[in-house]
Design a protein around this nucleic acid. Structure first.
Ligand code: FES
Ligand code: FES
Lengths: 146, 146
DNA sequence: TTTACATGTAATAATATAAGTTACAGGTTG
DNA sequence: CAACCTGTAACTTATATTATTACATGTAAA
């Protein structure tokens, strides 16, 4: 099992909006860059818009960033594209046997532990910004062209 | 999307082996406790055995713990039941466009970042043992019976 | 205002994984 | 040998992802 690529695609889109900020970033253009189809890009862009991360409107070609690069964390993107519902990173088996000591307590015991782990993950995503990502991309690019 | 319940079921099984250590924990017995079917329990028990966490052998009824409770972390279980391949918690879109600055660098940039987040998650799981889980279950049990 | 084009969105299909179920081969014990 | 259990494969069902197609709606320029 892996977390949906909507997350990495979301990061990709935002990075592209910065790197290609002089151009017009239509869903078709972005789709070619990501190597998928425009409808999926529009769906994800819509999610990013709902989260206040990009500007995009019906009929008007191209999306633009709605916030400073340094103000968008990977956690923002993670939450925006809705790959994991809150407190549901780990699935917990439903309806364990209430007649069993373990069964009637396991969910309440495991739940908070899983939440701590989930928060640790989110914290790690929260300290990285799209600015960091773009800088790293441009550095790698420079290095490869030497 | 959620990580497979094999993880929570694995924790459930190990906890049950301790709480019911006086009894014979056959796959059928465990299945009733977890509220699923015996074949799935045998599959997961087999994974726990491969990871050296339980003793279980063909023809012999019942599984037992193969290590001290305090020596089994949730990370051990997480890895044993194979819910997430190493370095693959986050899916990354394949074949981004190599003709694009972002496309030809995004994977190498995102990969390490995702690894850090994944390690943060695993670290959080590594500090909790099955002993902690069992203790909490028994505490909750005592509290509910007051 | 009409034409061209972009976004929003729904419907559909293909693919992958999880989880439930059934069946049976093979091991162990009495 | 008989009863019982584990290991495992096959099949089914359910669910989520991703790709694809289609079209309504919005915008702007000719
Ligand atoms: S239902 Fe008893 S251990 Fe989960
Ligand atoms: S931004 Fe991902 S391929 Fe160009």
């Amino acid at each position: 099992m892996s977390i949906s690529t909507r997350f990495s695609v979301g990061i990709h889109i935002l990075s592209l909006l910065e790197v290609n900020k002089e151009g017009v970033n239509t869903s078709e253009f972005i789709a070619k860059s990501v190597n998928t189809n425009p409808a999926l890009i529009r769906k994800i862009t819509g999610m990013l818009r709902n989260a206040g991360l990009v500007n995009v409107r019906p009929g008007i070609a191209g999306a633009t960033l709605a916030k400073e690069l340094s103000d968008i964390t990977l956690l923002d993107v993670y939450q925006a594209v809705n790959v994991v519902q809150d407190k549901e990173l780990f699935g917990i088996h439903e309806q364990p046997n209430p007649a069993c000591t373990v069964g009637r307590n396991i969910q309440d015991t495991i739940g908070p532990i899983f939440s701590v782990a989930e928060l640790a993950l989110e914290k790690a995503l929260g300290v990285v910004t799209i600015e960091d990502v773009v800088k790293d991309i441009l550095e790698k690019e420079k290095f490869n062209n030497q």
